[in-house]
Design a protein around this nucleic acid. Structure first.
Lengths: 337, 337
DNA sequence: TTGTAAGCGTTATCAC
DNA sequence: GTGATAACGCTTACAA
């Protein structure tokens, strides 16, 4: 900037004014400075301006796992709202690793971003509470809040119940849940919902077979498929509720591959209703969540908190899930079975 | 930091030493300072340290479209290598929008990140050349480089040829390509490869029907499926090569939905071999790329450039694609057709 | 309308 | 081993 000033024959302050309050500076000087800027290829140093003037124009979305299309869809909503507020969004992918979450949160704290949105891998990380205490608002996305944050969620207990209600209505007796790790609130809640659905019809919730996985991935779904397909048909569940669509897709693929007919031998319900659920080998029944809206709302809450300052009241927004029925649970038609 | 110094009864410089060269400071003072740090919840200001000491410990990966699993898989490779080098990775999602790419590149320039990896939406953006000229190395990922960058790519011309070779071997005469926009080099190259395959067997490359799409998405694939399924069977292609798997999945879904049998009435080849290709309604034949490796190599090139400084010689690494044959082109077995 | 100068929170170079 | 102090590149009063 010093060079620009020299080149244009003005002072540092004037260059700064051209950059920040162009109306304050005479047209002639301004164009001289602008010429110098392009001639020298000057680019402002964001760290310096940030250091001087408080906050950055950046927001971060720390996601559990960017390989899951659910989160990239939520991220699309985040970006949309953030763009409208003229904030840039950095996506920080934890890839399911709590250490990475920790590192990102530390980094973002040091970076003094405007705010952080998180779908936590580890919701118990103390950093999640430290950040807002030190002035960086945090909004929890897809996970319930403590007293220190706003949150946007979809009711996962209801969602789990929706799925199992549907299977019970279809007359299924042996129902399994595939999902994990249960340290993820989403998974735990969906299983709770599944149990409550059984309970409501007078069945013992302990009847629910839980096949725990180490992650919500297609690969884990395949593994679960192997386990189930390996059971003698007498003992095998006739229906499976998967904690997300990736699991369901893997399970579906492996089940079909090992000769099971879906839904005839095995009905499958997924969760999230990602775009690929509909395009699957057997179109997947799934519990849909308003993904984009989740992201947009999260940003709205964040902006409200940034605007309000410390007297801000944290809010929890909860959306309702919806069951989308497709062939993976419907009675098989002639072309599908 | 001043507060920490006061609280611990030492000077600013000592606090800094505790933070950066703890061995230089007496154990007693050190623990006093550390106590003060945790007591006050002190977090270093990254902008300030960055301003003082040159460069950041951050790298950005600007992706064409994070909703495409291909890119999140590449990103996983990027993160892996970046983690190993103790660099944090920000993912910047352009969502296919060149304006967003422009905004991100501007922001990253101002932020003085260590380096930028890009799978460009708009490879002609002058910012891509300005950045390295001003000291921020840029590595092009999945796109060929000019003289100002390193690049890592997979040979898309060969990939396109691989796909069409396969269809020709299966005896297909009327072959279509679905893809777009052709402003994307990937798309253009794959189509070029497709044409060259026809040429090699003495066919007129102009025979290739090109169904242009506005993006590489499932939705666009569905639209293309409608167009194709609407044709009278006499004129309809018997095989389609899609420029990526998302298109292929959408096309597949809609074709099957409109009564076409895959591969009997319509054979489909995708590109990228994303995880969902295998789990599709009809498992998808696809051209596989070493996605993770692409990302890891990109970071390696970037680090080499950062290490070498201006006398660095730009490199272009090109990997080979591989055809993975599945049911969407194979002769239908009893269970699949 | 433009220039001057203080200060943002660090780090690094010195003396002490 | 520790404490002053001068940068780093910018913004913003305030003075000219």
């Amino acid at each position: 900037m010093k060079e620009v000033a020299a080149h244009a024959g003005v002072s540092l302050g004037t260059v700064s004014n051209v950059l920040n309050r162009p109306e304050r500076v005479a047209a002639a000087t301004r164009s001289r400075v602008e010429a110098a800027i392009t001639a020298l290829g000057f680019v402002r140093n964001e760290s310096a301006r940030h250091l001087r003037s408080g906050r950055s124009r950046t927001l971060a979305f720390v996601v559990l796992d960017a390989a899951n299309p659910f989160f990239t869809d939520v991220a699309a909503g985040v970006q949309r709202s953030a763009d409208a507020a003229d904030l840039a969004t950095y996506l920080c992918d934890c890839g399911g690793d709590p250490d990475r979450q920790a590192r990102y949160l530390d980094l973002l704290a040091e970076q003094r971003v405007q705010g952080v949105l998180v779908t936590p891998v580890d919701p118990t990380d103390p950093r999640l509470e430290q950040l807002p205490r030190r002035g960086t608002p945090v909004v929890l996305v897809d996970r319930g809040a403590g007293p220190t944050h706003c949150s946007v969620t979809v009711d996962d207990v209801t969602g789990g119940a929706l799925a199992v209600d549907h299977l019970l209505e279809l007359g299924h007796e042996r129902i399994a849940v595939v999902g994990g790790p249960t340290s993820l609130g989403q998974v735990a809640d969906r299983i709770t919902g599944a149990r409550s659905a059984l309970e409501r019809v007078g069945r013992d919730p302990a009847d629910l077979v839980v096949v725990e996985t180490t992650g919500l991935t297609v690969a884990e779904g395949r593994r679960a498929g192997d386990r189930l397909a390996g059971l003698p048909s007498r003992r095998r569940p006739t229906a499976v509720f998967c904690a997300n669509d990736l699991l369901a897709l893997g399970l579906l693929q492996r089940s079909v591959g090992r000769g099971l007919r879906v839904p005839h031998d095995l009905a499958i319900v997924g969760y999230d209703d990602i775009e690929f659920a509909e395009a699957a080998a057997v179109p997947l029944t799934s519990v849909a969540q308003p993904r984009e809206l989740l992201g947009r709302t999260a940003v709205d809450l964040l902006l409200a908190e940034v605007g309000a300052g410390p007297e801000h009241e944290h809010r929890r927004v909860v959306f309702a899930p919806e069951l989308v029925v497709r062939s993976s649970t419907a009675v098989p038609g002639p072309a599908t079975g």
